[in-house]
Design a protein around this nucleic acid. Sequence first.
DNA 1: GGCATATTCAACCAAATGGTTGACGATGAA
DNA 2: TTCATCGTCAACCATTTGGTTGAATATGCC
Lengths: 126, 126
Amino acid sequence: MVDDEMPLGLCRGMVLSLDTVFAALADPTRRAILSMLLEDDMAVTDVAEPFEISLAAISKHLGLLASAGLISQEKRGRVRWCKLEPDALREASVWMQGFGQFEPVNLDAFERFLAAELVAPEAECD
Amino acid sequence: MVDDEMPLGLCRGMVLSLDTVFAALADPTRRAILSMLLEDDMAVTDVAEPFEISLAAISKHLGLLASAGLISQEKRGRVRWCKLEPDALREASVWMQGFGQFEPVNLDAFERFLAAELVAPEAECD
DNA sequence: GGCATATTCAACCAAATGGTTGACGATGAA
DNA sequence: TTCATCGTCAACCATTTGGTTGAATATGCC
C-alpha cells in the first residue's frame, strides 16, 4: 500500500506504537502484570511469583511491555524494578475515543470494571 | 495455571472480550477498516478497495472484527454490509482510561528522564 | 574466592496470525 | 438460462507469538 492510497491518514511509523500497545494489551498475562504494577513497582521475580509460567516467559512479557512503553525498567543492584507507565496508554486511549461518544473518563466505571473482571476470582472460576 | 493461583482474578473465559478486542485493534489494517466504517456502512468489496491485499484477506479481517464485536455484518441481496459497533470498545476504553488516569504515585527523575528519552519522534503524517 | 540470587539469553517447539491462490455457492442482471 | 459480481471457504505458506529448558551473566553475601 502506498501512503497516498492509505485511508484516513494512516502512514507507516505512525501506527507502530498503536500496534505495539494494543498487541501488548491483548494478552491477559500482560494485563494482569499491569494491574499488579498499578499497586506498586515490582522486581521481575516478584512479578512472576503469582504466575505458573516460567520466569523467562515473564521476563519476555516484561520486555514486550517495556518496548511498548507501558512499563519502564530500572536495574538497581541485581534487581530490575518494573514500573507502570500509564502515559503510554494515552495515544491508544485517544484513538479509541475517536470511535465513541462513550461517557469519557469515568473512574467509577473503571473501578466497577476492575471489581468485576480483575479482582473477583470468586465469580465461577472453579 | 490453576485459577486459585491466578493473580488479580484472572480466569479463563472472563477476559476473552478484552483479549479479542485488543487483538483486533492491534492490526493497522483492521484499525483502518474501523476508521473507514466510522464514515459510513460499507460493503466488503468497498472496504477492500483501498487496500492492496486480497479480498479474502479483508474478509478474514472483517470476520475477526465481527467476532470481536467491533462491527456487525448484514447480508442484503448479494452484498454484505459492514457496520461499526462502537459499543464494543467501551469496555476496553474504560479499562485503558482507568490506567491512564492514575496519577503516577512515584514519578521520579529517572522515569521522567526515560519518558523524555523514549518519546517517539514526531511522525509528520501530512 | 565461592556460593546463592536475579535475570536474561539461546535454542527450540506448537499454535496462532496474516497473507496467498483457486474453487465454490449465492445472488442479481441480461 | 447464462453470465458477471459478491463474498467465503479450503488449503497452503511464512512469520510471529507464547511457552519451554538449560546455560550464561551480574550482583550481593559470607
